[in-house]
Design a binder for these strands. Structure first.
Lengths: 144, 144
DNA sequence: ATTTTATGTTTACAAATGTAAACTAAAAGT
DNA sequence: ACTTTTAGTTTACATTTGTAAACATAAAAT
């Protein structure tokens, strides 16, 4: 589906992306402005982050004279979803539900999203198991 | 609450923790056995990971003769929850709901957890906003 | 007692990340 | 035209992570 090599994105790089996602089309100056309101990173540091993001393919740099105009190549939601899925996949299937429940508990969620969640839950209830089996050991196990 | 310095845990280290969580009290040999069924890491590599986990305080090493018996210092769910929360906090509040919904969609969840989720959703519906405001820029924004 | 095996410790080394200094060249100000 | 500012590029350097080689030593096997 996607043609870019999914090299992952670091913490600091993510901060830059947030600015770009919010501003849409933007440039170095704007990124510096907004980011320096939150972080005390000097220009040079932020420029390095931008460069690495372009290299990694997360930012598109369209030349405009001798400047660049930056845009994100994937949406924030897509990116976060991928990262979160990868993270969650580190863990035993058995406990994923618990974690998602806890995340739900402490995140602000809109009415619309809550409704979608209810639908999804009804859907899942039709086939949900009493307990999701552990998939941690080669042998299989229920104690996980 | 917790007295340990929360240095974070890496991908490879996580694989070791999974084994320990599943086995409960365990030792190097068992970890090597189980882990080498999944990964082609040589002994030395895994021993390094164990050592780093002990250093970071994620594994407890109780001496037993010249061996050690290892146990995890936090549960898998706690650990994942913390990592996931940290990750999610990188992102704009506005879209967290979407991401959680997508995670829910592609994770196996037990009947019990689904019921808990429904309860939580009913709870949240009482005060949920039409739309969660963006918190990405110093100025505030609705376009995020 | 000597060899082999198991377990643990020390050292190593490349890639990624956080963080920045130095330098270059164009643009804008005077 | 000369100076200052701005945007971009190159180089740097410590820490963390992935991955392992080398080495030490106790325990087990012969």
């Amino acid at each position: 589906m996607s043609e870019k090599n999914l090299s992952s994105i670091s913490d600091s790089e993510w901060e830059v992306m947030r600015i770009v996602w919010t501003l849409g089309e933007t440039n170095t100056k704007q990124i510096l402005n907004e980011l320096q309101a939150k972080k005390d990173w000097i220009d040079s540091t932020i420029k390095t982050l931008i460069r690495r993001l372009v290299q990694k393919g997360w930012l598109n740099a369209k030349q405009d004279g001798r400047r660049y105009i930056y845009t994100a190549t994937v949406s924030q939601t897509e990116m976060m979803y991928n990262e979160a899925k990868t993270l969650l996949n580190r863990m035993c299937d058995m406990h994923k539900g618990e974690v998602i429940l806890k995340l739900l508990k402490d995140s602000p969620v809109s009415k619309g999203d809550l409704i979608k969640m209810k639908k999804e839950i009804s859907q899942k209830e039709k086939t949900a198991p009493e307990m999701v089996p552990c998939n941690c050991l080669k042998t299989g196990s229920t104690i996980c």
